[in-house]
Amino acid sequence: MKISGKVFKFGNNIDTDIIIPTKYLVLPSLDEMARHIFEPLRGENFSAQLSPGDVITAGKNFGCGSSREQAVQCITACGVKLVIAESFSRLFFRNCINNGIYVIQSPSIPGMLSERDQVEIDINACEVKNITSGITAKFEPLSDFLYEIVQSGNLIDYFKTRKSW
């Protein structure tokens, strides 16, 4: 599987209140919620800049804070299928897997990506290629078990076919 798009880059300790503030969690649909993605940091129209295939990268402890799964689902609603960070909060990591987002955890790859760089990620080859800079890097793949959930699309589809863990 290959993913290609633009990079949107964030710093350390980006919490889920920033990804989707609590006051929007009661909105009736995910699409309405997703319009407010990263609003405290990037203002009101950030979601319009995201296109399918784009990649979000961040520093340490990405997705820390609240358990709100909407933080991950708003990211998928904007067409993002892959996130790369130096490290993740465990809750956010699990929520990504359960919603079919591929997660790359790497201490060095976020440092080779800049805002708006064009990237291509080959998941089978475990390779990130920064088209803009020409730099490539390898990453540690997810375990087979977690990749199976990601490939199912999400944990709902995983259970629809398997019925148990």
């Binding site: 804070g65 609240s66 799964e69 809750l91 929520n95 359960n98 919603n99 863990w165």
Partner: peptide
Amino acid sequence: TDSHTCTYGGAGVFATGIGYTEMAA
């Protein structure tokens, strides 16, 4: 389904937060 589920660790409970999809599972 809340990140502060870890509170119960004060009573010797292994407790942690998860998302709602896993809660359904």
